[in-house]
């Protein structure tokens, strides 16, 4: 049974995105941060009739340090662990007040989403709460100074997965949070990237216009934590998709489609741009390459298994 309603888009593109900034200049993100690219664009699509929720994360700090704020819409923060249920509570309270047309969106980091906030997220998804949840994925706990998260990829240096003579960065693999969210059978799950803006805008608009629980995970590089040139934020995000390190797909009512078919370029170029991978041995690069191939193979099978014609 289809759980969602809506999802129609008028096809917002970079050309038609409104000028008005609902997330203003003067915020204090590091130069070249990927997260504000996501948030600026998302707020332009969501519009003024929106309430936002944030757990502790870089965005919370650079977007607002009381009494200053970059958001021109209501902005709430309770705890790190419970973004999804707080957003759901806000939505239900607004409904009770008869304000059913307000968009409620939670923006959270990868740590706040896939690790610390996960039980709340899972619960809200299972109950199909009517909210949009956007995770900007910078692959570590950046706000507290670059600690590894479940979303940190294999081999990456962080302050808690140092690269030295005994270990060479993180020894475990990136947690596939989008697939876990798909397993919740919510109306909408999608991945996006700041390197593929047209696709990102389409997905945000689509998610905005749906009802029920909607989950978006957007790849948003962090030049500070990734130890890279601030000018390359978008370029590195493109390379992640082209090399299969990050896959763009979406699931609407149980039907999964690939948005961009990965070119499966060698991962080397992607890794070489980032200081967090500087220490990698050839052996480790091979492991990462193998991971990307295997992930791609699994993704294609997954898309095949959940394609339109397999739906009863």
């Amino acid at each position: 049974m289809d759980r969602h309603q809506g999802g129609e888009t008028i096809g917002i593109t970079i050309k038609t995105l409104p000028e008005e900034e609902l997330f203003t200049s003067g915020h204090t993100a590091c130069g070249g941060c990927g997260a504000p690219i996501v948030v600026r664009a998302a707020m332009k699509i969501l519009g003024p009739n929106t309430v936002t929720y944030f757990p502790a994360c870089c965005l919370l700090v650079f977007g607002g340090t009381y009494p200053h704020n970059a958001f021109k819409v209501p902005y709430l923060h309770v705890l790190f662990e419970n973004s999804a249920i707080c957003a759901a509570g806000i939505k239900q309270a607004l409904n009770k007040q008869g304000k059913e047309d307000v968009n409620v969106v939670a923006f959270a980091g990868d740590g706040g989403t896939g690790d610390i906030g996960f039980q709340a997220l899972s619960g809200a998804a299972e109950r199909n709460e009517d909210i949009l949840y956007i995770c900007y994925d910078n692959e570590a706990y950046m706000n507290t100074g670059i600690q590894r998260s479940g979303s940190t990829p294999f081999g990456a240096w962080t302050t808690t997965t140092p690269a030295g003579t005994k270990i060479g960065g993180k020894e475990l693999f990136k947690k596939d949070i989008p697939k876990i969210m798909m397993a919740h059978n919510v109306p909408y799950v999608a991945t996006a990237s700041v390197g593929h803006p047209a696709d990102m805008l389409r997905k945000i608009e689509k998610a905005k216009n749906m009802k029920g629980f909607r989950y978006l995970q957007i790849f948003a590089p962090c030049p500070t934590g990734w130890r890279m040139d601030t000018a390359k934020t978008v370029e590195v995000a493109k390379k992640a998709v082209n090399s299969g390190m990050w896959t763009l797909f979406e699931m609407v009512d149980g039907v999964i489609t690939l948005s961009v078919k990965p070119k499966m370029e060698p991962v080397d170029d992607y890794l070489k741009m980032q200081g967090r991978f500087r220490h990698l041995t050839d052996e480790q690069i091979k492991i990462i390459q193998g991971w990307a191939y295997k992930k791609n193979e699994m993704d294609l099978k997954f898309v095949e298994a959940f394609s339109e014609d397999k739906k009863e």
Partner: peptide, 17 residues
């Protein structure tokens, strides 16, 4: 200075560059 929603416009970050 400004406080509240949108007040970060008062924070001129241009000197960082």
């Amino acid at each position: 200075g400004l406080v509240g929603p949108g007040s970060f416009v008062d924070n001129k970050t241009g000197s960082w560059k």
